[in-house]
Amino acid sequence: MRAVVLHAYGPAENLTYETVDDPVPAAGEVRIGVKAAGVHLIETLLRTGVTIGPPVPELPAVFGGEVAGVVDAVGPGVDESWIGRGVVTGTSRPGGYAELSVASVDALHVVPEGLGFEEAVAMIVTGTTTMALIDLGAPTADDVVLVNSAAGGIGRLLVRHARDIGAEVVGAAGGPAKVATVQGRAVDYDVPGWSSQVGEVTLVFDGVGGTRGREAFSLLAPGGRHIVYGNASREETDGPTPEEVKAKDITSIYAIERILAWPGGRRELEERALAQAASGRLTPEVQTFPLAEAAAAHAALESRATTGKVVLIP
């Protein structure tokens, strides 16, 4: 099969498109003919050898756990009725940047009727994270919500949900092109003084961090909620201090820590995310790249030139 392989940590161009052996499903596993594979920002850091959450992979490595496709083989002990079924999973091996991938049958979800493979793979991790953020932030129609990184995969879903429940929403993104993709009221946080266009808010979802994240925090009204889920800026600026949080009676949550220890695990979140997409209540925006251009996808993601969820198509 063809796959994208990393042989040495470093820049995006270290990802090479080459021929490797087909994976073989072990007991309790299926093999998936990949139709869509998700790309995660964390993978761009792991590619450089930087540890952030997950450990760096042993080399050579094929990245990508998020896969949607059609089962073409099963391992020992797995019902053959899985063959030919459209499935999605967030935990595949050796990785999703390939034409074939393997996953445990226990980690599979059948792709809901009416949902495409690209949308399904966008929801299996990005969507489940969004479900958790919604639970943690608990937005209501009475809130004024600021979504930082609003043109990203998670940000777009958060804006859509907050608007649908009747909240007042401001989406902040970087540059005119990205701002134009945000539904409803939007501001450009690359423009100095951007926060003066927003005013006081009661809930911040921050996926960008750095100085923009600090500025977003400063807009919170006393008693507000501050939900941090990423640092797309890659700036090392410190977040709000405990004293700052206490002074304004803010509830400040670093969501990834909570999600990793989610009660009952991630499966319930995954099911909810797929159901939301299948019903049309939350439709993910997807930006696709051919599998052979995975290096270009990484470079675009690192330079913050993408919108929505980045997906590779074999």
Rank of each mutant, 00 (worst) to 15 (best):
A232P: 08
T181R: 08
G207P: 05
G207T: 06
Q183K: 04
L146F: 08
D188N: 14
P242L: 08
G184D: 01
A177E: 15
Y229N: 03
Q197W: 04
D190Y: 15
A221E: 13
A216V: 08
A167H: 02
A173L: 06
R156E: 03
D190G: 15
Y189F: 15
I165D: 07
A221T: 12
H226P: 09
G199A: 02
D164Q: 12
G174A: 12
D188R: 03
G175R: 05
G175T: 09
I227Y: 09
G230F: 03
A232C: 12
R214G: 14
G171P: 00
R234D: 14
V159Q: 01
T181V: 11
L203V: 09
A177Y: 09
A162Y: 00
S233M: 08
V201D: 06
G171V: 06
G171T: 02
R185M: 00
Q183E: 14
D238R: 15
A232K: 05
G152K: 05
R234H: 14
Y229G: 01
G171I: 03
Y229C: 08
A232M: 10
V179S: 06
A232N: 01
Y229S: 08
A173W: 02
V170D: 00
I227E: 11
F205K: 09
L157N: 08
H161V: 03
L158W: 08
V204K: 02
R225N: 11
H161A: 12
V147E: 05
P192A: 11
N148E: 15
R214L: 13
A177M: 12
Y229F: 15
A180M: 06
D164T: 12
E215V: 10
R212I: 14
V187M: 07
A221Y: 01
A173I: 02
A186N: 03
K178I: 03
G152Q: 02
G155R: 02
T202S: 13
G213Q: 12
P240H: 13
G224W: 05
S149K: 06
G199Y: 01
H161K: 09
G184K: 01
R225K: 14
V228C: 10
G175L: 11
D238F: 14
V204L: 03
N148V: 14
P176E: 12
G230D: 02
R212Q: 15
L146E: 05
L146I: 03
A216Y: 05
V204M: 09
P240D: 11
P192W: 13
Q183F: 01
G153L: 02
A162K: 00
G166H: 04
W194F: 10
A180C: 02
T237E: 15
Q197C: 03
V169E: 00
V204P: 04
K178N: 05
S196W: 01
V201H: 04
S149W: 01
R234V: 14
T211G: 13
V201R: 01
R212D: 13
H161S: 12
P240F: 10
A216W: 11
S149P: 00
S195V: 11
E236L: 15
L220C: 08
R225F: 10
G171L: 02
V201T: 03
E215S: 12
G184P: 00
A216L: 06
S149N: 11
G199S: 10
H226G: 03
